[in-house]
């Protein structure tokens, strides 16, 4: 494999990892607050459909993005009401939302556009187009680093850079701010938060809604940047892969970034069977390559990465007791 192929592979990794990173950090907020969320998939799918449809109608990717975030936040709010206010089972709420999203997105897209459950293809300003970072062309002559900057770092849509910024921001919020301290506390021991005179309910709703915003970004990226429009089940289990990455990363933001890049790398490999064959000198069946990220997910969830201790109060509705 030559250097150019490697760079192509890495650039593809970054693009494919972006929705994972956004969804994974989304899940991180919710789960660090003690609310398990297996409905990341649902929120991404709803956001993808909303953003695809609205971006087409308005011709603006930004308006589409807002619609995507809005749709995702509605689903986040439902999960919040079910699991915080009514103290329901968080897994059941998540599963229900996944089913609902899977059906309703196709139904709405079909009834709006009559294109077999897809939204019409987006072009021009209705998509987030790649942006060239300053100096990308000028520095291309610098050995090794120049092409890397040009291919891998530069030339992505703004949402890709947003995803990396979100990781750093989240690390800073969790470790350096009052909100982060309280968020971590409420996922570990809500009684400690309650007896300190802070609202457990308020904190958890805040976390769940942040999850909604970030899933909205992830879904909108799928429909308006990675691809050009919404298609049925286009998230293809990325919500679950993001959860696996979250566990892999032991609920820490920077580790989550690396975990998502690893999953993204496997997805990128699946798109380039020729590269795999070139390196391994035998033909790996295509379906096996396609399955790699999911196999990795299963391995992670089966506990092959060592003991991952989730937030101690995760999954348990808070009931006040002495």
């Amino acid at each position: 494999m030559d250097y150019d192929t490697l760079l192509q592979l890495l650039a593809s990794t970054v693009r494919l990892a972006t929705p994972l990173i956004l969804a994974c950090i989304a899940g991180l907020y919710s789960e660090r607050s003690g609310i398990f969320d297996i409905g990341l998939e649902a929120k991404m799918l709803v956001a993808a459909m909303c953003s695809g449809a609205v971006a087409y109608a308005s011709g603006s990717a930004w308006v589409g993005l807002m619609a995507g975030i809005g749709g995702s936040m509605v689903f986040a709010a439902i999960h919040g009401v079910a699991s915080i206010t009514f103290r329901g089972n968080q897994l059941i709420s998540g599963v229900a939302l996944n089913f609902l999203a899977s059906g309703i997105t196709v139904l709405v897209a079909q009834s709006l556009f009559r294109q077999g459950g897809r939204t019409p293809p987006l072009s021009g300003d209705a998509r987030f187009n790649p942006i060239d970072l300053p100096g990308a062309d000028a520095l291309q002559g610098v050995p090794i680093l120049g092409p890397f900057y040009h291919e891998v770092v530069s030339g992505h849509s703004i949402l890709v850079y947003a995803a990396f910024a979100v990781v750093v921001l989240t690390w800073w919020v969790l470790s350096r701010t009052r909100f982060g301290l309280r968020l971590r506390a409420v996922g570990e021991n809500p009684a400690a938060v309650d007896t300190s005179g802070i609202s457990v309910t308020g904190l958890r709703y805040a976390a769940v809604m942040i999850t909604g915003v970030l899933c909205g970004l992830a879904g909108a990226y799928m429909a308006t940047a990675l691809q050009a429009g919404f298609g049925k089940e286009m998230t293809a289990g990325r919500g679950y892969i993001a959860l696996a990455a979250l566990i892999f990363a032991k609920w820490r933001p920077v580790a989550a970034l690396w975990a998502c890049l690893l999953f993204g790398f496997f997805q990128a490999l699946a798109l380039r069977p020729d590269v795999v064959e070139g390196v391994l000198h035998f033909k790996v069946p295509g379906p096996f390559l396609d399955a790699l990220p999911y196999i990795l997910t299963v391995l992670v969830l089966a506990g092959f990465v060592g003991k991952a201790i989730p937030p101690r109060a995760g999954g348990q509705p808070y009931v006040k007791e002495r």
Binding site: T177, R178, F179, L181, R182, A185, A192, S196, I198
Partner: peptide, 13 residues
Amino acid sequence: ENVILGVEDGPML
């Protein structure tokens, strides 16, 4: 961290 939880002096820790 346990001592300041809930009585932090401002948004930064």
